[in-house]
Amino acid sequence: MAWFRKERRERTTTRQRLEIPADAWDKCDQCGHTDIRDKFDRNLQVCMECGHHRRIDSRRYVAILTDPGSFTELYGTLGSVDVLGFEGYPERIAVARRKAGTQDAILTGHGTLTGVPINLGVMEFGFMGGSMGAVVGEKIARLARRSLEERVPLIIVSASGGARMQEGAMSLMQLAKTSVTIAPLKQAGIPFISVVTNPTTGGVSASYAMQGDVNIAEPGAVVGFAGPRVIKQTIGQDLPDGFQTAEFLLEHGMVDIVVARHELATTIARLLRMMLRREPLPASS
């Protein structure tokens, strides 16, 4: 028998169970790292553990790439029409508007970035896979025209599966339409920065997304002409690891630089200020 005896005390739970609602947690789809949802969000939806860049919507990019309160939306009332009478298209548009909460697959406007005036277009992947129809083409064309007339740099953030099938060859012609408005910027010496995010394929990658004076890719973004599924089908074998990722494109010389989301605004601002011969950013930023 033990020479001491533990004094029996009545069990009382002093520790309160922390009430954390189930949806307060979030998990990285890449590495499985679990953390508080708000922390992911404050980290711009980039995983704190592995650096995986999760998709964010067009509004979020506007917040990242413009000075607070400086952004004014332009051409926001342009809407797609069913130009071919393509079965099911009007319904798809209606559903997309509800789901994405945007009028179409790109948000355009003007603002400032560290005080430098910019025209900014951000594609909305949530709207029919960021597909480019006549509205996307027109908004980019107008924005590029505006850049030319005002001599203001153009920034386009792409996220798109390509041309919008439901507008047939008319959507294909948007590749031409955007190209004829971007080409004059080059001659006029007005910077055009293209940011490609996950994913950017098809007609968008084969037009303005690859026409930047500087092409910037987000880490891990899949960027290419043909989608991975199509290529797999064509060659009848699995694709090598990392094929068509931002890092792959960098290695093969198709993009200038891969920039993490936290660094995106600063990197662009730095470049623009040098291209435009403006004073450098203060060291703190």
């Binding site: 190209s179 084969a206 303005y208 690859m210 290419g224 002409f225 290529i231 064509t234 010389g253 198709m254």
Partner: peptide, 15 residues
């Protein structure tokens, strides 16, 4: 739509 075509920048060439 093949490996070599993508490696050598099919999208960039068209653009």
């Amino acid at each position: 739509p093949g490996l070599g075509a993508e490696e050598r920048g099919q999208a960039e060439a068209i653009a």
